[in-house]
Design a protein around this nucleic acid. Structure first.
Lengths: 106, 106
DNA sequence: TTCAATAGTTCCATATTCCTGAACTATGGG
DNA sequence: CCCATAGTTCAGGAATATGGAACTATTGAA
């Protein structure tokens, strides 16, 4: 199992962020994390997203969000905790995240 | 040749817009159109984008931008004129377009 | 320590989307 | 009518995404 990597703020790209959030499923997941701070367990999230998402797909979604720099994931025991990097990202790309979440109606 | 269709403002979706602009090439094209209003000819644009983009790809890019509701295209004689719908879109999704263009540095 | 349960990741085959050269269409001029 | 210009469409190969099955990591209990 390869270690979890979080890109540095300076290396984030608009295209990766837009790509990550251009999927409504991922946007919903991110909105959930950003709203609640520290969302535990994929299963909890999949319910939050109201759809039945296979866990492998969910895992991929988290990976895409993480690699875009939108979330930070850390393992706590057997589970994974995900935190929003929205504040940081907002420093680099002001207004981007809020505008996107608002466009989606989150 | 099927007629050019422009989606109504109410039918635009954030995901289509984010997807369209998650490609740096397309974002650059859109920024160019938004900045100059009425950019003529694909070839002119491809130069503007500084890269050599095949015209079939360029045509696809315009299609994606058009179907996302970001531009309006009209034929004038043998060529095509493209206008930004940024103002309209901004009414529907406030701040979205400016934040994206600014994130890209346009 | 070993075993089982839980949470998530990785692999891989399938499906979908993207890219682009080549052929085609549309328009205007000579 | 034919040619040139501007752009679109088609086709198939490349790249990505999806999701089931197998695997890994961690905890807790026997």
């Amino acid at each position: 199992m390869r270690p979890i990597v979080h890109p540095a703020l300076e290396t984030l790209s608009p295209e990766a962020i837009l790509h990550a959030l251009s999927d409504p499923e991922r946007a919903a997941i991110f909105a959930e994390i950003a709203a609640s701070e520290c969302v535990e367990r994929c299963s909890a999230l999949s319910q939050a997203a109201t759809r039945e998402i296979p866990k492998s797909s969910l895992s991929q979604h988290f990976k895409v969000l993480r690699e875009a720099g939108l979330i930070r994931s850390e393992r706590v025991g057997v589970e994974m905790r995900n935190y929003s990097r929205g504040m940081e990202v907002n420093g680099r790309f002001p207004g981007l995240i809020p505008a996107i979440l608002s466009a989606y109606g989150f």
